[in-house]
């Protein structure tokens, strides 16, 4: 029985990575019907999300693949979570991410992919939406106490807003409490240094991998 379960979970992983939505949802449905521990399925999701990140970094996946993968992971989660609640279990979170598109920018495609993937790998995500002023980030850090703050933006003006946000976080003495990652099509190492962030990424998958590395380092460091 357990070996056939392993095979099914492996099939689920493969169908996610093949971006075969129909098959992935069908396998999930079958697993849940046969009363498989929902946490086992969530483990597959986490594994898949990490592998997706790796494929993106190696240039094997593109944004359209991340979007499809995100949809699949979300679809599976939506099937699994009610079942998890039903059996009275909950999922352990790996960390808390506070994210938003910075002031003056209303683009959210990248941010939304990050939210979907970060949730899939087990982050608790607080999404502040778009056009978020520095003050709101600061208030939300105080309220939610996240490990990581994600600043997203597409426009070149976003870089300036990111800097203002990081400055505001520093001025209120919260900078040391959080890791800050900036993301968007036009950020790079120059932008990261200018803004004063800890990391930068042009894509959601790499961003999620960086964040996972941070929480692991923190765990490792005690």
């Amino acid at each position: 029985m357990s070996s056939s379960l392993e095979v099914e979970l492996e099939r689920l992983l493969k169908s996610i990575l093949d971006l075969n939505e129909e098959k992935a949802l069908e396998i999930t449905e079958n697993l849940l019907t046969s009363n498989v521990d929902p946490l086992k399925i969530l483990e597959v999701i986490k594994k898949a999300a990490e592998e997706i990140g790796g494929r993106f970094e190696r240039g094997e996946y593109f944004v359209a693949d991340l979007v499809m993968a995100g949809e699949i992971l979300k679809g599976i989660s939506e099937k699994v979570m009610p079942k998890l609640r039903e059996v009275g279990r909950s999922r352990e979170t790996v960390g808390k991410l506070l994210i938003g598109t910075v002031e003056g920018d209303i683009h959210d495609i990248g941010k939304n992919i990050v939210v979907t993937m970060a949730e899939a790998v087990g982050f608790e995500v607080v999404d502040l939406g778009v056009d978020v002023p520095p003050k709101k980030f600061v208030e939300a850090i105080k309220q939610h106490n996240p490990n990581i703050v994600g600043l997203s933006g597409l426009l070149t003006l976003a870089i300036d807003s990111m800097k203002k946000t990081v400055d505001a976080i520093r001025e209120t003495g919260l900078r040391e409490k959080v890791k800050i990652i900036i993301g968007g099509g036009r950020v790079d190492q120059y932008a990261c240094e200018y803004v004063g962030a800890d990391a930068w990424t042009n894509d959601a998958a790499t961003g999620v991998r960086i964040m996972l590395k941070w929480v692991r380092e923190k765990e490792g460091g005690g």
């Binding site: 070149t156 870089i159 036009r186 790079d188 120059y190 932008a191 200018y194």
Partner: peptide, 9 residues
């Protein structure tokens, strides 16, 4: 020319 070079360089 990366715009970020002109902004931050």
């Amino acid at each position: 020319v990366p715009p970020s070079l002109i902004v931050g360089g």
